[in-house]
């Protein structure tokens, strides 16, 4: 074997070093300029509510379809906690605005600011709305209450305990709007989510429960819950023998306060590059058209929205104003919506 001189050895290592440096430079170059190849690495999707919940499942179903369309892995994780999903939202908002971190949110997240969870508004997001399930008011199947009129008559005479998720949740807002619409008081009993609230109605710990049809469907099918009315303008044919009437029929004044619709969706930072936003919007829209998502929505009593861009931003702004001012009027906000420059809802809302 030929002996190599020290000089040659030095030269070889120098060449290797230069090669490595060039390689790194080139690699960085492609990464930085590689926006047109977005997404070039796995995407992290952070859902701000816990796994198995409505927001989580909707996000997982849609992002799995988007992953196929984008040809890139999407890792869904849950980061619940804080106030109204503030922990997960703060986390994602502190990540680089490159479209590689998505946040799975719901309408309740709009209250995070006024409840002291964080110092931001929803306008930092570029949202895409998957949709939501309509709200329904139900009692235990063993309850003596058989209709909405029954319930209201009783509420005017005795204390009726109502479960509707946690304080400041969409269900709670539905309850508040419902109270105003039917002009009868209910005692709100907070639960850490829809599932325990529904179980409490089944065990008759509380008299009524307001959550979404998607969340109640299994308990209704099992004959554990008796649905009284839909909290929007249309009735719902749940099965051949069961048509859930609209609450608006017997109480037309409800239309002034309801519906307050669920808006489950996902978002990326609004500072993300425009082409990334456009690409993701496109993938999102396509994902909602896939048979998988459509079948899932049908089976789960979920109505798809599909709004992205300005339309979605508008919807979240409307919800933000509605939610924050309602909570402010209840006197439970930590920071006034005014301080965050959130406008009061129009009289027409």
């Amino acid at each position: 074997m030929k002996h190599t001189s020290p000089y040659k050895q030095h030269l070889a290592s120098l060449a290797a070093f230069v090669g490595l440096a060039l390689g790194i430079l080139f690699f960085r170059h492609t990464v930085i300029d590689g926006a047109d190849e977005f997404p070039s690495r796995p995407i992290s999707h952070v859902v701000v509510w816990s796994a198995g919940g409505g927001t989580d499942i909707a996000n997982r179903v849609v992002s799995a379809e988007m992953a196929k369309l984008l040809g890139q892995t999407v890792n869904v994780t849950n980061r619940p906690g804080g106030v109204a999903g503030s922990l997960g939202m703060s986390y994602v908002s502190q990540r680089p605005a490159d479209g590689y971190t998505w946040v799975g949110i719901s309408e309740s997240c709009v209250t995070a600011g006024v409840m002291g969870g964080w110092q931001e508004r929803m306008d930092i997001w570029y949202p895409m709305i998957i949709g939501g399930s309509p709200s329904v008011i139900s009692v235990s199947s063993e309850s003596s209450i058989n209709s909405l009129t029954d319930l209201i008559a009783q509420a005017k005479q005795r204390t009726i305990n109502a479960a509707a998720g946690g304080s400041g949740s969409i269900h709670h807002l539905n309850l508040l709007a419902f109270e105003r619409g039917v002009d009868a008081p209910f005692k709100f009993v907070p639960f850490p989510g829809s599932a325990p609230a529904q179980i409490a109605a089944v065990t008759q710990e509380v008299h009524v429960v307001i959550t979404t049809l998607a969340e109640q469907q299994q308990l209704i099918s099992a004959g554990k819950l008796k649905p009284l009315a839909m909290l929007n303008e249309s009735e719902y044919a749940f099965s051949e023998n069961l048509i859930i009437p609209s609450a608006f029929v017997d109480f037309p004044s409800l239309s002034e306060h309801l519906p307050v619709f669920q808006s489950i969706g996902m978002a990326i930072s609004d500072d993300a590059p425009d082409e990334v936003k456009a690409l993701l919007s496109e993938a999102f829209t396509q994902a909602l058209q896939t048979p998988t998502v459509k079948t899932w929505a049908d089976n789960n009593y979920f109505s798809l929205s599909g709004r992205t861009g300005d339309a979605a931003k508008e919807e979240f702004a409307r919800l933000e104003s509605l939610f924050t001012w309602t909570l402010n009027d209840m006197g439970v906000t930590k920071i006034s919506p005014e301080a965050l420059a959130i406008a009061r809802p129009d009289a027409s809302e």
Binding site: G52, G53, R60, Q218, A222, T295, W296, N300
Partner: peptide, 22 residues
């Protein structure tokens, strides 16, 4: 779900189009 990992399983099942319940 009866426990925290079972809550995760519920999500996974629904994701695969299985709707656990009655």
């Amino acid at each position: 779900p009866g426990s925290a990992p079972a809550a995760m399983l519920l999500g996974a099942l629904i994701l695969h189009g299985v709707n656990p319940g009655p």
